[in-house]
C-alpha cells in the first residue's frame, strides 16, 4: 500500500507475530498507511508486531509521532512492538527520543523474530 511516499507491506511470521516492512518516508502524512498496515498485521492472536525499517529513507519528527501513536494502539491490544533494520542514524533518533525504551531494537529479522516468538 502506498500513502504519500511510504509503502508498507505486511507479512505473517507466525500466528503470534507479523512484520510490517517500511519503504520510503515516515512523516505525519503516513498516518493512514501506518494505521492500515497495523490493522492488517494485527490478527486475533497477534502478540508482537515487528517493524522492518531497512527500507526507511526519510523520517521527520512527525514520523516519530506516528510511531508513538502506533505504539499506543499496540499497547491497547496488549501487543509488543519490536524493530530491526534501523541504520545508525535512525537508531540514534530512537535513542534520542527514547522510543527505544518502548520498542525493542534488533539488528536482524531473525533476532527480532526470536524475541517476537518468545512466550
Amino acid at each position: 500500500m502506498t500513502e504519500g511516499s511510504l509503502i508498507t507491506d505486511v507479512r505473517e511470521l507466525s500466528s503470534r507475530a507479523s512484520v510490517i516492512d517500511f519503504k520510503g518516508d515516515v512523516t505525519a502524512s503516513s498516518e493512514k498507511a501506518l494505521a492500515d498496515a497495523y490493522t492488517r498485521a494485527s490478527g486475533k492472536f497477534t502478540r508482537t508486531i515487528v517493524l522492518n525499517f531497512s527500507g526507511l529513507e526519510y523520517m521527520n519528527s512527525g514520523g516519530i509521532g506516528m510511531l508513538v501513536t502506533l505504539l499506543v494502539r499496540a499497547n491497547r491490544q496488549r501487543q509488543r512492538l519490536v524493530a530491526f533494520g534501523l541504520n545508525e542514524h535512525y537508531r540514534q533518533i530512537f535513542e534520542l527520543t527514547r522510543l527505544d525504551e518502548a520498542i525493542g531494537i534488533f539488528d536482524t529479522e531473525a533476532e527480532a523474530f526470536a524475541e517476537a516468538d518468545a512466550p
Binding site: 529513507e57 526519510y58 523520517m59 521527520n60 541504520n87 545508525e88 542514524h89 540514534q92 533518533i93 534520542l96
Partner: peptide, 12 residues
Amino acid sequence: PAASRDAAYWAK
C-alpha cells in the same frame, strides 16, 4: 553508507 536525507535536521 549514504547519509540519510534528514540527517542534518536532527539533534545529534
